[in-house]
């Protein structure tokens, strides 16, 4: 568990072995990789962005125990309804009082009492939502995606939580292309609008940290801008022009 931005955003989760058993692992790579979810601490409650993999469930519950005050209101925002985002909801609901679960896409998510908040944001646009008092986030719908995806931008801290993008941090020499294994369809696509969208997202916001679902985060305004440029270039290079 690690503070990402000035006590406002915390990184939760643990490490996995990144090897041929993992679908997003580039060929020939064997190392550990962080799989993350994030807690945004508000003045009167907190927002958990994604819930981590089942393998880390006990660790995540323990990390939440340390970060949340007894009875503190908690809401969950899912960046995707994929497995690494939603599978720990039932265990978290069992331990904490979850007010609402925000998500996009057509799949229902496993939950019991929490209010379901299904939202649609057009790809390439964004929407500001008040998840709870003191936590207003911008849900950015990126063109870089495989399935319905939201990135979560916290204007107060400048943290941009990027789901399955920017996942190349943590290797000895981070290369943006390494994080694009999941997006093999780029090789048959005109990817220029996707790259342009990445540049626009960073140009239009004061991004001070990038927090991906896997891989280590990037911290610092210039670092984030550089990484956005690198990623956009890698996306262009993979596509057909």
């Amino acid at each position: 568990m690690e503070g990402l931005l000035g006590g406002r955003i915390y990184r939760l989760g643990g490490d996995i072995e990144l090897d041929e058993r993992v679908s997003w692992c580039p060929p020939g790579i064997r190392r550990t990789q962080a799989v993350n979810c994030y807690l945004i601490k508000g003045p009167s409650g907190s927002v958990l962005v994604d819930t981590g993999v089942r393998l880390h469930q006990a660790d995540i519950i323990e990390q939440l125990d340390r970060l949340l005050s007894p009875g503190e209101p908690l809401s969950i925002v899912l960046t995707r309804t994929e497995m690494e985002c939603c599978l720990n909801i039932p265990a978290i609901e069992e331990r904490f009082t979850v007010g609402s679960v925000w998500y996009t896409g057509g799949i229902t998510v496993p939950r019991s009492k929490a209010k379901s908040k299904r939202i649609a944001v057009d790809p390439g646009s964004s929407m500001r939502v008040k998840v709870m008092d003191g936590v207003v986030v911008e849900l950015v719908s990126p063109l870089l995606r495989l399935l319905p995806t939201l990135w979560v931008f916290d204007p107060e801290s400048g943290g941009l939580l990027t789901s399955d993008a920017f996942t190349h941090g943590g290797s000895a020499v981070p290369e943006a292309r390494e994080g694009l294994r999941k997006f093999r369809w780029f090789s048959g696509a005109d990817t220029r609008p996707i790259a342009r969208n990445i540049r626009d997202i960073f140009r239009n916001r004061d991004v001070r940290a990038v927090g991906p679902s896997y891989g280590t985060p990037f911290v610092g305004t210039n670092v984030c801008l550089d990484q956005a440029g690198e990623l956009a270039r890698a996306i262009e290079e993979m596509g057909i022009q």
Binding site: I16, E20, V22, S23, V53, R54, M83, L87
Partner: peptide
């Protein structure tokens, strides 16, 4: 692939 992360049990 990935199932050991999602369903270790």
């Amino acid at each position: 692939r990935d199932y050991h992360l999602f369903y270790p049990q």
